[in-house]
Nucleic acid binder design. Structure first.
Length: 425
RNA sequence: GGAGGGGUCGCAUAGUGGUCUAGUGCGCUCGCUUGGAAAGCGAGUAAGGGGUCAAACCCUUCGCGAGUUCAAAUCUCGCCCCCUCCGCCA
């Protein structure tokens, strides 16, 4: 959410933001509602004030009886009636206003390129040597995983439906080793570790900016809780409604959680394998920092660097792209995706997504802090994937395979995996 | 799933329909006092919204929401959370 005062004074910026993000927006409607709203607030306040004065007077002259009393009560009743009518009018305007406010996009950074979709994201750097499949060993990850009895997709679909999967044996150990390794790396970098809830209240979905837009992509339970698609939601809700101290910022959190996505509207995309599944696991990095653009930029770069270092430690060639306007979420100011190299597809595919929001999420969630002068401010928030499984197995296994079909476990991961290789049984 | 108790200013607590514009204590801030400090004394002590160049000023808020009433911290209903207990359970 943006500050209405900011919107009022920067209409062109907001319109440009909507254009860049390819979001439909009737800003004139919002401005008209805002004006109406303020007028009604002033009128309501005035009526309330008068009524309050009358009530106080009545209270002071307590024991009145008969005609005198009736007269006063009639007067009070009339005042109250006027207030009710005014409040009714105000409520109608405010609820439409509030609804629209949730749809106002955050302003993307100037460095964000124009573009419709992820196809127009800009590559900003690469690491490692991306090699085609035949140069590495010649097998795609599913073939390899089946050979090693690491996955069962058929029974996954039988039990769990479309996009269902079972991981088995070394894949289970490898997956857990990846989580553990990642958490360990982040802990070393000063992150507090969390195992976060996936089941969350609606207000957190709205607060992070996932709702109302992406409601269709999220599973809802019969208790009106939602199955979150990322620990970002729970971790942002963690401090909702709180006032933090400036000295306690930044807060750096690494949160593990199961993640759920309906993938509505993605039929036909990545139907095979472990890349796009309904149920997966993720370690997410979350940072809350001071309300300052340079701070946000600094931590955004650091979050990205952390994930790059994890990619490097695990020997996955990757590139980093700067996401274009059309590929940004409502609240995002700027986003980098890290895409791991997939030899079998001869291309890079998204494994991490690092974005910052300025105070967009904090405003919706009410996460504030008292600055050095004692002034209340909204924190800035950022997040980035640290590792997402089983998606990550695709690039991991293909890039670390040997000609004999065995899979190397890079040195930093060995103490978590317990061996240096996955060998043919 | 069931039974009961509770949620008031940073903390503790008072308040069961009208002077609550929420009292008191503690804490905190400032001042007086002092050689300095403590104690004592005095004043202040929130958030959100409207308004304004900024202020003054005004409105709202006693877990959240709705209702009854001229008037709600106080009465009614729904919800959320916390505590105690029974049941079930990894």
């Amino acid at each position: 959410m943006l500050d209405i005062k900011f919107i009022r004074e920067n209409r062109d910026l907001v319109k440009e933001a909507a254009r860049k993000k390819k979001i439909k927006l009737d800003l004139d409607r919002l401005m008209a509602l805002d004006e109406k709203r303020r007028k009604l607030i002033a009128e309501t306040d005035e009526l309330r004030k008068l009524h309050r004065e009358s009530s106080a007077e009545t209270a002071r002259t307590g024991g009145l009886e008969g005609i005198e009393k009736d007269k006063i009560i009639i007067k009070l009743r009339e005042e109250k009636d006027k207030i009710s009518h005014k409040e009714f009018e105000l409520n109608a305007v405010e609820s439409e206003f509030d609804e629209m406010m949730l749809l106002i996009p955050n302003i993307p950074d100037l460095s964000v390129p124009d573009g419709e979709s992820d196809a127009e994201n800009l590559e900003i750097r690469t690491w490692g040597e991306p090699k085609p499949l035949n140069a590495i060993g010649g097998k795609d990850y599913l073939t390899l995983m089946k050979e090693h009895d690491m996955v069962d997709l058929e029974r996954g679909a039988k039990v769990s439906g479309f996009r269902g999967y079972f991981l088995k044996n070394d894949a289970v150990v490898l997956t857990m080793a990846l989580w553990h390794f990642t958490l360990d790396e982040l802990s070393k970098r000063g992150f507090d570790l969390f195992a976060a809830p996936s089941l969350v209240r609606e207000e957190n979905m709205v607060g992070t900016g996932w709702f109302p837009q992406s409601k269709n992509d999220v599973y809802k339970t019969q208790d009106d809780l939602y199955l979150s698609g990322t620990a970002e939601v729970a971790m942002m809700g963690y401090h909702a409604g709180e006032v933090l101290e400036e000295k306690d910022l930044p807060r750096k959190y690494a949160a593990f959680s199961p993640c759920f996505r309906r993938e509505a509207g993605s039929y036909g995309k990545d139907e095979k394998g472990l890349y796009r599944v309904h149920e997966f696991y993720k370690v997410e990095q979350i940072i809350l920092c001071k309300s300052d653009h340079q701070e946000s930029v600094k931590w955004h770069e650091e979050l990205t660097k952390n994930s790059e270092e994890i990619m490097q430690a695990l020997r996955i060639p990757y590139h980093v792209v700067l996401n274009c306007g059309g590929d940004l979420g409502l609240g995002q100011v700027k986003k980098y995706d890290i895409e791991g190299w997939i030899p079998s597809e001869n291309k890079y595919r998204e494994t991490h997504s690092a974005s910052y929001f300025h105070d967009f999420q904090a405003r919706r969630l009410g996460i504030k802090y008292r600055d050095a002068e004692g002034k209340m401010r909204f924190v800035h928030s950022l997040n980035n994937t640290a590792i997402a499984t089983p998606r990550f197995l695709e690039s991991f296994i293909e890039n670390n395979q040997n000609h004999d079909g065995s899979i190397n476990i890079p040195e930093p991961l060995q103490k978590f995996f317990g061996a240096a290789k996955i060998e043919k049984k």
